[in-house]
Nucleic acid binder design. Structure first.
Lengths: 110, 110
DNA sequence: TTTTATAATCGTAATTTTACGATTAATATT
DNA sequence: AATATTAATCGTAAAATTACGATTATAAAA
């Protein structure tokens, strides 16, 4: 069916999965790296950094935007992208907590 | 086309995306939570904790296994699942570094 | 005002994902 | 040995994802 049965899970599980899913493609990781390595926003020229067509990059940007991880403000004929400070920190925190909740198996394990 | 042009990205980008993608579904987050909240491995009874059919859960488990985040060892008629210590820590580290590489935009921003 | 440049959207196609019932394989249990 | 239990796999269907060329909308530049 391909449709995630979202109703059955907690809000936190859904949110966490949304952030992770947005990060779940090499192109989007690459896009974020470009946004991260410059300290300021990027106006345009993201496409030039990636081995994908303009429309495909635009689609990936849209997904990152929909997950909230980045924002894009219109600035003349270009669009100014940058990391969304709040959401980025929230994603960091939530994912961090998941990973930190792990403690090694005890001796009775596998 | 639906096929990720994986050749064009760095190994690290691909690895990072693979971990994130594995985390990119509420059911898989829920599965991991079950595995995380018990300190030991879980033999069976994962299906009972989730609002999905046995075959669907099995499929999600397979994806987590393929990403390396969990392991499942056969133990009689049950299968013993747990977090893969090494991979878990690697995923934590890699994702953590991505998030940490962010520094707020300077004043010339958007 | 016409042209150029930028980026979103549309249309399309192939692949992957999500989901489930049914079946299968393997091992306990009776 | 026959039966039950557990979990993977198979088959199938619907929806989502990935990708790109073409088109569109907007704004800057000529």
């Amino acid at each position: 069916m391909g449709l995630t049965k979202t109703a059955q899970f907690t809000d936190e599980e859904i949110l966490l999965a949304r952030y992770a899913k947005a990060l779940g493609h090499p192109a989007r990781i690459a896009i974020l790296r470009v946004l991260l390595e410059r300290k300021a926003c990027i106006c345009g020229d993201i496409v030039d950094e990636l081995p994908l067509s303009q429309s495909t990059v635009s689609q990936h940007l849209k997904e990152l935007k929909e997950a909230g991880l980045i924002q894009g403000d219109i600035d003349g004929k270009k669009v100014c992208y940058c990391i969304n400070d709040q959401v980025w920190k929230q994603a960091q925190e939530t994912l961090s907590l998941l990973f930190q909740s792990y403690t090694s198996c005890d001796s009775s394990c596998c």
